[in-house]
């Protein structure tokens, strides 16, 4: 099976008025299907730049990025948008839900831009996803009416709705207390158990300890790339959740 993400000699320079900021220098990285990668590093190490490039929100100055079967490095803005809507799922630190939409409507958004019509069937799927992340009771609530943990679970459901190749999580627990963080991480682990590839940026060792692979960055380069031999595991990987998720995603609408 080919790797999901393959980047080679990726470089990103920012050109500010007179200075050139070398945010990323010649980074190469391969992520296989089903991996759970934690990107770590101090601020300014280039981890956010790398995540933006992986998320197709930005284009590299140099190097190649192959996501699935597609070479992303030279795509125009519209094609990149299409890639984001089809193959990527985003989870942000500040949840980033649309305040005027309800829970279900928020989950639907990626489908909207994928160019598929919102039908009763897709609506049903979004409701099932909301139930899967434990928000079955709050389908018609707006983000303002939800707690941080609940909002992040909506964001997770939204990241799953298009059955992405990769889920990119930017400090998903950064705004949450430790108990809620634990819940969210357990949910991510379950997604990973169900076969989802996750790349997560964090600066907390506790959180990184859940991941199977930890990449540390410094000054725009990869410093270490370790397999986590004893990742924290979820005690009760409920097979019901995994199979429910799998069956949901297998009937994904493309």
């Amino acid at each position: 099976m080919p790797p999901v993400v393959r980047i080679e000699h990726l470089t990103k320079h920012y050109f500010l008025e007179s200075v050139t900021v070398r945010a990323l220098c010649d980074v190469s990285l391969t992520v296989e299907q089903g991996e759970f990668v934690a990107l770590m590093g101090p601020s300014g190490s280039g981890k956010s730049t790398l995540l933006n490039l992986l998320g197709c929100l930005d284009r590299p100055t140099d190097g190649t990025y192959i996501l699935g079967d597609d070479d992303i490095s030279h795509m125009d803005d519209d094609r990149l948008s299409e890639v984001r809507s089809r193959y990527l799922g985003f989870i942000f630190q500040s949840y980033n839900l649309l305040p005027q939409y309800t829970v279900v409507e928020n989950i639907e958004v990626p489908l909207l831009y994928q160019g598929c019509r919102i039908t009763e069937k897709t609506r049903q799927r979004c409701i099932q996803l909301a139930e899967l992340v434990g928000l079955g009771e709050r389908l018609d609530h707006r983000p303002m009416q939800l707690s941080g943990g609940q909002q992040q679970r909506v964001a997770i459901a939204r990241a799953l709705v298009n059955d992405p190749h990769v889920i990119l999580a930017d400090e998903p627990t950064g705004n949450l207390d430790s108990r809620t963080s634990e819940e969210i991480m357990q949910m991510l682990i379950r997604l990973n158990e169900a076969g989802k590839t996750i790349i997560m940026v964090t600066h907390e060792n506790d959180i990184a300890a859940w991941a199977k692979r930890v990449i540390r960055m410094r000054d725009g380069q990869i410093e270490t790339d370790d397999r986590n031999t004893e990742p924290r595991i979820v005690q009760d990987v409920s097979s019901a959740f995994v199979s429910a998720l799998n069956s949901l995603l297998s009937e994904a609408i493309q």
């Binding site: 929100l57 958004v109 990626p110 831009y113």
Partner: peptide
């Protein structure tokens, strides 16, 4: 909101 929509795949 525009940023969120763009990240989730909205074209220009």
């Amino acid at each position: 909101e525009i940023g969120i929509r763009r990240a989730l795949g909205a074209k220009r």
